[in-house]
């Protein structure tokens, strides 16, 4: 197999959070991402699934250095991004782009769609003539399913799905090799979701893009990803091929997640045995000392409360972090 496009090693993002009163306040570390490692091949889609507050969005931003990682390496084609200066990093951004969850909020409401899409061009190709930039913008608008004569309109004149297409066009215009998709369809209507998912797949195949697809929706992630990483409280619980993860989940959290997804099929939905987890996500400021999932785990033992499990390969390309998984 060829070399990975991106290698993330032991990535940690900790935020200092002030706790306590005005006088006795002190800082505690909020471990949003705590020791995550993965490789991403060219043309591959890695799905990152987890519930809100598990650090999956922070992880995506740390990979792009939009949030400075506290520790760890983000190796892009053999070069550690975390060590680059601001200027060098800015030049690298041509290769890696991001798509956001809220399609309208990620577009500056005061400038036209044409200017929004052309913005990366202006920064990376300042010598490009405006006519050339315009023709490239219009060509791309066509490719993402927007009518090119909308180029002078403003974001608020578009629907959510169209805004997401604009966001995708902005990310695509500099022909990046990696796009981090942060919940790109969760704010969209059902009938629009499928359109955007198809568009992303289509663009990926056409341009050999690598995608990091962050979502809380397991169905969407399964549909679009090649490999899926399940994250809980800043740590990786399980990584596996999409089908293996669904058919043979090894981690109790993955099992619970899969069983909790409501299926649009009344008979199956009513027949299935749901693993209902008790309680809520523990506060990331006070994570459990052992396995972070221990407080809600149906198969926990005393070992889990004291010793954090290690992410280990259980079968070919199937890793899980659990003391008790087969």
């Amino acid at each position: 197999m060829n070399a990975p496009l991106l290698s993330v090693r032991d990535l940690k993002v900790h935020f200092p959070i002030r706790v306590g009163g005005v006088l006795q306040g002190r800082y505690k570390q909020l471990k949003a991402v705590d020791g995550v490692s993965f490789d991403l091949m060219p043309g591959e889609t890695l799905g990152i699934v987890g519930e809100s507050g598990c650090g999956k969005s922070t992880m995506g931003r740390a990979v792009l250095q939009l949030i400075k990682p506290t520790q760890g390496q983000v190796i892009w084609l053999g070069q550690d991004l975390a060590k680059l200066g601001a200027k060098q990093m800015r030049a690298k951004r041509q290769d890696m782009q991001i798509i956001f969850q809220d399609p309208l909020a990620c577009l500056n409401p005061r400038i036209t769609v044409g200017d929004i899409i052309a913005e990366p061009l202006r920064t990376f190709h300042p010598d490009m003539t405006s006519a050339e930039a315009k023709s490239r913008v219009q060509k791309l608008m066509q490719q993402v399913g927007l009518h090119p004569n909308m180029i002078n309109r403003y974001p608020h004149e578009f629907s959510g799905g169209q805004c997401q297409r604009i966001g995708i066009a902005r990310a695509m215009i500099v022909e990046p090799r990696l796009i981090v998709c942060d919940e790109p369809v969760s704010a969209l209507d059902v009938s629009i979701q499928a359109q955007i998912i198809n568009l992303l797949r289509d663009l990926q195949q056409r341009f050999q893009l690598s995608l990091i697809f962050i979502s809380h929706d397991l169905s969407v992630v399964r549909h679009i990803s090649h490999r899926i990483m399940v994250v809980y409280l800043g740590k990786v619980m399980e990584v596996a091929d999409r089908d293996a993860l669904y058919t043979h989940p090894r981690h109790p959290y993955t099992k619970a997640l899969i069983s909790a997804v409501p299926l649009p099929d009344p008979d199956q939905e009513r027949a299935k045995q749901r693993i209902v987890l008790s309680g809520d996500l523990p506060s990331p400021l006070n994570p459990p000392p052992g396995c972070v999932f221990a407080s809600r785990c149906p198969i926990r033992t005393e070992l889990c409360a004291t010793t954090p499990p290690v992410l280990e390969e259980r079968s070919t390309d199937h890793h899980a972090a659990c003391h008790h998984s087969e």
Binding site: A91, Q94, Q97, I98, F100, Q101, A105, E119, R170
Partner: peptide
């Protein structure tokens, strides 16, 4: 707001 983050991601100074 996200569009500022988007601008950062686009390498805008």
């Amino acid at each position: 707001r996200e569009f500022i983050e988007a601008a950062h991601a686009c390498g805008v100074s």
